[in-house]
C-alpha cells in the first residue's frame, strides 16, 4: 500500500508544475459558463411564470455553477491521453515487470491531478461564485451535503474508470483520440453538462436513467440542489455504486484482454 503513497506524492509534485496552466484553464472556463448563464437569464426574463421545467432562475444558475465544481473535482483531463500514449509507446512494459498495478497507479496519478487542479481552481471559482452569490443555492442541510460528497467521490471513480477503459482501446487501434472525443460528446449531453436532464422530454430522461451517464454529473449536482428526495437518496447512491463496480469489472476485463494482445512496440 505504501508504494502507492509514493506514486501519489510523485503525482502531486509532477502536476504542481502545471499550476499556472490549470489557473488559465479554470479562468478561461468561466467565460463560456458566463455566456450560458446570460442566455438562461434572457430566457427567464421572457417567461411569465419564472420557471423552466421545475427550475427557478436561481436553481438553474446554481445547476451550472455546481456542475463546474463537480467538474473541477472529477473530470478526467490528461489521464486518458497519457494512458493511450503509454500503451502506444510501449511504456506499460515496465509495469508488467514491477510489482505495481497499472490501474491503481493511474488512479493515484488521477487523484493527485484532481487535487492540485481543485486547489488551483478554487481561487477563480470562489471569486466567480461570490459575484453570483445572489443566485447561488447551497445544499439544504448537512446530511444532503454529506451525500453530495459521497456521490462526488463515486462520480470521480466512475469518470476515471470509464476513461481508463476507453483509453485501453489503444491496445487495438492506433488512434484513440476520435473515440475519446465521441464518448466525451455523449457524456457532455447525457451526463447533464449542457443542461439539467429533467428538462428533457420525460421519456428521454427516463431512458437515460438506465445508462451510467446521469451518474457522471447530473446526479451529484441534483443532490446538492436538494432535488433528490431524501428517501430516494440511498437508493440513488447505491445505483451509482453499482455502476462503479460494473465499470471496474469492465476495466479489469478489457485490461486483461488488452495485455494478451499487447506486443510492446518499441518497448
Amino acid at each position: 500500500m505504501e508504494k502507492y503513497w509514493h506514486v501519489l506524492n510523485i503525482g502531486l509534485q509532477n502536476t504542481l508544475v502545471y499550476r499556472l496552466n490549470f489557473l488559465f484553464r479554470a479562468t478561461f472556463g468561466l467565460i463560456p459558463l458566463t455566456a450560458t448563464i446570460f442566455v438562461w437569464r434572457t430566457i427567464y426574463a421572457g417567461k411569465t411564470d419564472g420557471r423552466v421545467g421545475s427550475y427557478e432562475l436561481a436553481q438553474m444558475v446554481s445547476y451550472y455553477l455546481v456542475v463546474t465544481i463537480v467538474d473541477a473535482l472529477t473530470a478526467v483531463t490528461e489521464d486518458d491521453w497519457q494512458i493511450a500514449a503509454d500503451i502506444k509507446d510501449g511504456n506499460i512494459s515496465q509495469f508488467l515487470l514491477k510489482p505495481m498495478d497499472y490501474l491503481t497507479y493511474r488512479l493515484c496519478l488521477f487523484g493527485a491531478g484532481r487535487l492540485v487542479y481543485a486547489v488551483v481552481a478554487l481561487v477563480p471559482t470562489v471569486a466567480f461564485l461570490w459575484l453570483l452569490r445572489a443566485d447561488f443555492v447551497l445544499p439544504p442541510d448537512a446530511a444532503t451535503a454529506g451525500w453530495f460528497i459521497v456521490s462526488v467521490g463515486l462520480t470521480a471513480l466512475l469518470q476515471f474508470l470509464m476513461s481508463f477503459t476507453l483509453a485501453l482501446l489503444a491496445f487495438w487501434v492506433l488512434e484513440v483520440a476520435t473515440f475519446i472525443f465521441i464518448a466525451f460528446a455523449f457524456e457532455y449531453l447525457a451526463g447533464g453538462h449542457l443542461f439539467p436532464l429533467d428538462i428533457l422530454p420525460p421519456a428521454v430522461a427516463a431512458l437515460l436513467d438506465y445508462t451510467p451517464f446521469p451518474y457522471l454529473t447530473y446526479f451529484p449536482v441534483s443532490i446538492w440542489l436538494g432535488r433528490v428526495p431524501a428517501d430516494a437518496l440511498p437508493h440513488g447512491v447505491l445505483v451509482q455504486l453499482l455502476w462503479v463496480v460494473a465499470a471496474y469489472a469492465l476495466a479489469r476485463l478489457v485490461w486483461s484482454r488488452g495485455i494478451r494482445k499487447y506486443s510492446a512496440v518499441g518497448g
Partner: peptide, 18 residues
Amino acid sequence: ALQLTFIGVLYLHTDHIG
C-alpha cells in the same frame, strides 16, 4: 449536433431568446 440539441431543448421551454 450536440449544440443544435441544446437549442432544441431550450426552445422546448421558450419560444424566444430576446
